[in-house]
Design a protein around this nucleic acid. Structure first.
Lengths: 234, 234
DNA sequence: CGCTATGTTGATCCATATCAATAAGTGTGG
DNA sequence: CCACACTTATTGATATGGATCAACATAGCG
């Protein structure tokens, strides 16, 4: 481990920690470490038991899973937020693995400390509820997206989401590699390539990871975005 | 509504309620109702805001979702447990619809009461964390199952799960209609029919909803069950 | 600059959906 | 209790979405 953590104010400001007693926050941070990881480091392996609650301060982390030689990305974690909270709280094995996508700065809080403070700090317990409810709803949306849509529809809606996130600009860059985007969307890289072409009639053009969408060509009519699937919040 | 609820002891015994203060439990139950529903009643429609936390006492409930004229079952809820807890806590729109599969007895607790008690009862808040963490992990497993396996593999693992639940007996009955099983497993009814046949070489035989598995014919070697996907708990 | 990983394109194969017809249940009212 | 209607399940034929395999192109990176 690199070094013990000072009381990172950005961590304290996280919804999860902002309401809790100062002494409890101090107790958590006393045992915590901050580390810088290079890209492509496996932080967590599914099946192992939860030693640390992770908080990402900068960079990005891929949550993925494997079975029988296959692998799929489930979600991407971005600053500032926690991950694998559910495994930590339940003291259960991780269901997903995690790896850094880029150089990332990550806080590690021993799981037993988290559980101990959870038992005594009521505001912390309530904050965890909010956090977990949010993550639960996020993955319900992921499941609906997978089961109700074809890969072309998933890509179209993903692009509309990204466009929204870019402030509705007609052009934006993909936030990560196409191979991982394909995995997140539940398809192969080859199929993603073809899906991009399949959206050309709807005004989507691609060069490298730069996307331009002519919104008047009917992509919204094709994608039929639905807040109950596509809204990142709520 | 039928009638105000007496203090159902089986509800009180639920992990969610067992640790909370008696007065708070009373407060929740004062506003609660118990109702008997016939089969195929839509209890909840996705997109609406959460009015009641639901607790199923008997029968079974299907959680499903629709988009663009398509529909899929996401999970089945059985006694005694709550559903749509996350929407209630977040005061957010339901992400899934719910309908009774059979005659079902259900407790309805006004969501605002749940949220009010959540704010003042610390043990209740902690119990909700456990409950949510469990549900979160359950749906992560559903997602992994969908993304990492073919439909034949999903069916094989489902059958092994059911077999386990039947105490490892070589024969058992399917717990629900094949059309809904198909939807849960993410396939069409026609494909499910063919999938059953596809498992015949592995010792699976089907008559109506009665299943017999000759475990020596290698279905486990084919299914490769994995606790990180197939264990209902943990 | 050249190596290696990523992305694209084409050809083909396979899994799964769709459409259509039939069969088997299930429930209802006479 | 049977006959009828209606839903569900099966089977066959076909279409299609998506995966796989292979070749090539391109882009990062040391």
């Amino acid at each position: 481990m690199d070094m013990p953590s000072p009381d990172y104010p950005e961590v304290r400001r996280l919804h999860l920690f902002s309401g809790m007693a100062g002494e409890h926050y101090g107790a958590l941070m006393r045992g915590a470490y901050v580390q810088n990881f290079p890209p492509q480091i496996e932080l967590i392996t599914e099946g192992e038991t939860s030693d640390f609650l992770h908080i990402i301060l900068s960079g990005s982390v891929d949550l993925f899973s494997s079975w029988n030689g296959r692998e799929t990305s489930i979600a991407t974690v971005r600053p500032i937020s926690t991950f694998i909270l559910a495994a930590t709280i339940r003291d259960a094995p991780y269901l997903m693995s995690a790896r850094t996508l880029e150089k990332s700065r990550i806080v590690l809080i021993p799981s037993q400390d988290v559980r101990a403070v959870f038992e005594v700090d009521n505001e912390f317990a309530r904050a965890i509820v909010t956090e977990l409810a949010q993550r639960y709803r996020a993955i319900v949306k992921i499941t609906k997206n997978l089961k109700l849509r074809t890969s072309l529809e998933r890509l179209a809606n993903y692009l509309l989401q990204q466009r929204e996130q870019a402030g509705g600009a007609s052009a934006f860059d993909l936030e990560f590699e196409k191979r991982r985007l394909a995995s997140l969307l539940g398809m192969t890289p080859e199929n993603l390539s073809r899906a991009f072409k399949g959206l050309r009639p709807y005004g989507v053009s691609v060069k490298g990871n730069h996307i331009v969408i002519d919104i008047d060509k009917g992509i919204e009519r094709f994608a039929k975005p639905d807040p109950l699937i596509d809204d990142p919040d709520s």
